[in-house]
Amino acid sequence: MHEPTSQGLPTVGRDGPRWFAVTAAEARRALAHFVEHRPAHFGPHEDAPLAGDWAMAHSLLSVPLNLGLLHPLDVVGEAEAAYRSGDVPIASAEGFVRQVLGWRGYVWQLYWRFGRAYRHRNALRTPRCPTGGASSTPTRSPRPACATRWPASATAAGPTTSRG
């Protein structure tokens, strides 16, 4: 069964609600939402999970960046503008810019250099997330960071929700 999305694109099954932006309009809303609500916490808390806020300070922009819906320089420009306007501390803006341009670019280059087999390497022999399967990645994070399902409070991420 194919149902159209709110953008008129065919999908298999019912479209939405979604947790991550997968259209250009959703990506722009997700970026605006991040810049308005999350960057002040990004620096000091970027990797901290909270039971009541599954996304905490994470931008939730990896999916639209990886899909090419957002350009990294545009995303960084928004973070810089928020810093220059006084809305975001320098540590938070710098941390976000470093993640987008530095870490994201570094990992992208690793995948190009070492190919598809790279995702299965585990030189430090760290435990895998308990979900198993081909999509699991090595982690040194505490077990709760590898939750097998989203917390009950994790309804669709506000700005990316589509009710096709």
Rank of each mutant, 00 (worst) to 15 (best):
E3N: 14
P4A: 03
T5F: 02
Q7F: 13
G8A: 02
G13I: 01
R14P: 11
P17K: 04
P17D: 03
R18E: 10
W19C: 06
W19N: 13
A24H: 14
E26I: 02
E26V: 02
E26A: 09
A27F: 02
A30N: 11
A32G: 08
H33K: 01
F34M: 05
F34S: 04
V35N: 06
H37C: 02
H37I: 03
H41T: 15
E46A: 11
E46S: 15
A48W: 14
M56W: 15
S59V: 01
S59H: 12
L61M: 08
S62V: 14
P64M: 01
P64V: 01
G68R: 07
G68V: 12
L69N: 09
L69T: 08
L70S: 01
L70T: 02
P72I: 00
L73S: 13
V75D: 00
V75G: 02
V76Q: 06
E78W: 02
E78S: 07
E80M: 08
A81K: 14
A81N: 14
Y83I: 02
Y83M: 01
R84I: 00
S85Y: 05
D87H: 15
D87T: 15
P89H: 03
P89Q: 04
A93E: 15
A93G: 10
E94W: 09
E94N: 11
R98P: 03
V100L: 05
L101T: 11
G102L: 00
W103G: 05
W103I: 00
Y106Q: 05
Y106K: 06
W108N: 09
W108F: 09
W108T: 15
Q109G: 09
L110R: 15
Y111E: 09
F114R: 08
G115C: 03
R119A: 08
H120D: 10
N122P: 08
N122T: 04
A123R: 09
L124Y: 10
R125N: 10
T126A: 02
P127K: 00
R128H: 05
C129G: 08
C129P: 07
C129S: 11
P130A: 00
P130S: 02
T131E: 07
G133T: 01
G133P: 07
A134C: 09
S135R: 12
S136M: 03
T137W: 10
P138L: 00
P138C: 11
P138M: 01
T139R: 04
R149S: 11
R149Q: 10
W150Y: 11
S153A: 12
A154I: 04
T155S: 06
A157H: 15
G158R: 06
T161S: 10
